[in-house]
Design a binder for these strands. Sequence first.
DNA 1: TGTCCACTGGAAGGGAGGGCTT
DNA 2: AAGCCCTCCCTTCCAGTGGACA
Length: 410
Amino acid sequence: MEESIFQPYLATKSIFRMDREILRPSYIPDKLPHREDHIEQLAQILAQALKGERPSNVLIFGKTGTGKTAVVKYIENEFRKADAARMVHYLYMNCEIVDTPYGVLQGIGNRFIENFNQRIPFTGLSTDRVYNLLVEKLDEEKRVVIIVLDEIDKIVLKNGDDILYQLLKINDDLSRARVSLIGISNDLKFTEYLDPRVRSRLSDEKMVFPPYNAEELRDILTERARLAFDNGAAPEAALSLIAALAAQEHGDARRALDLLRVSAELAERNGDDRIAEEHVQRAKNKIELDTVIEAVKSLPTQSKLILLGILLNEEVGNTKLTTGEVYTTYRELCRRTGISPLTQRRVTDLISELDMLGLVHARVRSFGRGGRTKEIQASVPLLDVKKVLEKDELLAEVRGYRLKVQTTLI
DNA sequence: TGTCCACTGGAAGGGAGGGCTT
DNA sequence: AAGCCCTCCCTTCCAGTGGACA
């Protein structure tokens, strides 16, 4: 066969044993190290459902990557196995993606509607209508419905607790079906935003998932590495390093697994047969940069313009900016690109969004007579991000544009 | 001690885009 | 076609504010 340019890459022997899905956070292994107790506790509560009774509502707390979602999905699989007759419906919903009351009701409802044409549309009906439709659908049969609301704090923060109130009292409107809720939150304080009645009904049972420490992370990595790699491809030293790095980042197991996967990919691409410390360090940098670049790419144009404005200032040595300065630069960029400018009020909000995404630092500071404003600073690598921004066709007019250096008088 | 700057961030509301109901 | 309803993105309006300075 003729040599193709792909040949060298195909020839390198993969250090992954089979598909690398095993290292993705979405993969649910048969064993979740250091979460056995939580699984058991949750199983005990939810087992009621198999007797046809409504289990208690559960609230689960824990930071990202502490295994909340994994445990909940694990239980879902167990229900699949145990409940052949499908009396128990277990449905998972992420409130960060579906973040409106309407969306949640619609999402739940559609799980019970097989006929595509009868599905609840994503807009158009009144929320009450959708609720009634949902009640009607659920009550068609005697069944127990367990609804998992992941990132439940997101929806409460945005829309208040009306939707939870509605879902909690849905059992009063049902005669045959029964509904239980499992809420998952990153934020321990989130119940403070709830109406006391909602709070007490929602948290019949509470569970807290503590962050993993380095040792526990190493166990998790070892377990996964055993499945994913051939012997020796992931030496203990490498796993320990990854565990240590991830433990520094608040014990996030998802981070640890990502780091392992990317380290392995880098080792493989390099033609090495095992993961070395160097691969781990490079993987760490790569992940950090990739995350930022992805976030920047998916920004709406207006936010890109604002971010570019902040970076252009940084380029000329102006690192700490006020809202006013950012807005002035932004207006200039709008003028040059022909994009119609937003009001300063809106731009403040967009700056706050950039802050939440971790792309800039913005904190409110008072300069006395100089007024009270945000102090804004980019927190992304200037050159890499600028390159990404300038790829946007809408920003073509300002490619290579530089700000004039301020002549400081003093 | 009070003033006053440059905003902040809440509230209300408009209107576009989507889609059902009658 | 007219009348609703929902969400998203945005504008307008504005009371409120931390702290350097007079």
